[in-house]
Simulated scan of single mutants.
Amino acid sequence: MDRPILLDCRHVWKLYGASPERVFDRHGPSPGLDEIRKAGLIGAVRDVSVRIAQGEIFVIMGLSGSGKSTLVRCLSRLIEPTRGEILFEGRNLLQIPERDLIEIRRRKMGMVFQHFALLPHLTVLQNAAFPLEVQGVPRDRREARAREMIELVGLKGREHHYPRELSGGQQQRVGIARSLVVEPDLWFLDEPFSALDPLIRREMQDEFLRLQSLLHKTIVFITHDFDEAIRLADRIAVMKDGAIEQVATPEELVLAPATPYVEEFARHIPRAKVLTLRSVMAPARPGTETAGTLPAAARIESVAEQVVGADRPFAVADAAGRVIGQITREAVIAVLIGRSGGNGASRP
């Protein structure tokens, strides 16, 4: 990872129950799940270590009860971890004074949750400006900033509407504008779209990706939906029973699942949605006439029609524009029918 680390989570635990420290006293620094349960405790988060880079979309996913929402609340210290370290910009959030933590949350962190939690007696403009009002920012400055965010999320013209006058998707956009108004360095989103209808949810995912392309935030995104995770993530952490099973790119999860649990999670995901041209391209052949050039990071699904419809292969280029391979219609078809093994190989 070549980008600076913004959030470094080291061996974080959250055990619920009476006197959780006793299980560490008895079984050492890494008690097993059975040992935790026999002690009458709930292992909501177990020995989690992750490093999240600046500008990264880091998705934490798992089924209900896997610990993903508890973990994100530990990362922001809305819940007090039982053990571990959480370093944000090099400072351990578990050791700083409460006053400093509040200031970090107000000025450096943004949070969006599944339930929009808008203040019903405030307008869109007032809701979006509320975090700056809490900071004591003068009205003209906070409203000017709020208007910028409202326009950014596509709600210009609705500044004086109340939440009850908005659709679910529009309400969530207000929540996003409110979380961005303080210009956070770190943005937490806990299943922000799961309460929305499928079509609106897809639109909000598109909006989220558009905003990220403009703002380049460091994002921790929680979901139980693998389709959503692979669409949005730079990397994904899969959780089960409070522990992380694997941290990897969407491609790596599909091509090289680390555990049977991750393999089962990834089993039914269409590979064309996940695999990039880089993973299935063949070596470049000098002198080959090509139909054009495609980016190595493009997902197969997004270019399949173009490649399959061409009578020549396409060159594949890296981010710097250098040709690093070529992609043929046969390779794309192999992915579409489920035969591709990655890196230009195919399974019989």
Rank of each mutant, 00 (worst) to 15 (best):
203 E>D: 08
217 K>I: 01
219 I>P: 03
224 H>A: 09
226 F>P: 14
228 E>C: 02
238 V>T: 12
240 K>Q: 15
229 A>Y: 13
204 M>E: 05
224 H>K: 14
211 L>D: 00
234 D>L: 08
236 I>W: 04
206 D>E: 13
231 R>K: 14
234 D>T: 13
239 M>V: 06
241 D>E: 15
207 E>F: 13
209 L>N: 08
223 T>S: 10
239 M>T: 05
236 I>S: 03
209 L>W: 07
235 R>Y: 01
227 D>P: 05
237 A>E: 14
204 M>W: 06
208 F>C: 12
213 S>F: 03
239 M>N: 06
236 I>F: 03
221 F>D: 13
230 I>Y: 01
202 R>V: 09
226 F>Y: 14
220 V>K: 09
226 F>I: 15
206 D>Y: 05
202 R>Y: 09
215 L>P: 03
207 E>P: 11
203 E>G: 05
229 A>G: 12
204 M>N: 06
225 D>F: 07
228 E>G: 00
235 R>P: 00
231 R>Q: 05
210 R>N: 10
218 T>R: 11
237 A>M: 14
230 I>L: 07
238 V>R: 12
212 Q>I: 04
218 T>Q: 11
233 A>P: 09
217 K>A: 00
226 F>E: 12
220 V>I: 15
215 L>R: 02
241 D>C: 10
228 E>R: 08
239 M>R: 05
210 R>V: 10
220 V>L: 13
207 E>N: 11
237 A>N: 15
237 A>W: 14
233 A>W: 10
241 D>G: 09
214 L>Y: 02
239 M>F: 07
223 T>G: 07
229 A>T: 13
238 V>S: 12
238 V>H: 12
229 A>V: 13
224 H>V: 11
230 I>D: 01
209 L>G: 09
234 D>G: 07
233 A>L: 11
209 L>S: 07
215 L>N: 00
241 D>R: 15
220 V>Q: 10
230 I>H: 01
222 I>T: 08
215 L>S: 02
226 F>M: 15
231 R>N: 01
224 H>S: 10
207 E>R: 13
218 T>A: 10
230 I>M: 03
216 H>R: 09
206 D>M: 07
212 Q>K: 05
225 D>C: 06
216 H>E: 02
207 E>C: 11
223 T>A: 08
221 F>M: 14
226 F>Q: 15
235 R>L: 03
230 I>G: 01
216 H>D: 06
212 Q>Y: 07
204 M>H: 08
220 V>G: 09
206 D>V: 06
241 D>L: 13
211 L>S: 00
207 E>S: 13
225 D>K: 08
226 F>D: 03
216 H>G: 02
227 D>W: 08
223 T>L: 08
219 I>L: 00
232 L>I: 14
202 R>A: 13
203 E>A: 06
238 V>M: 12
236 I>V: 14
222 I>C: 08
224 H>T: 11
219 I>E: 00
219 I>T: 05
220 V>P: 08
222 I>V: 15
222 I>W: 06
238 V>Q: 12
213 S>Y: 03
219 I>G: 01
229 A>S: 13
221 F>Y: 15
213 S>K: 05
205 Q>I: 03
235 R>K: 06
238 V>D: 11
225 D>H: 06
217 K>C: 02
211 L>I: 02
225 D>I: 06
205 Q>H: 07
238 V>L: 15
224 H>L: 11
210 R>I: 09
204 M>F: 07
235 R>N: 00
203 E>L: 05
235 R>M: 04
235 R>S: 01
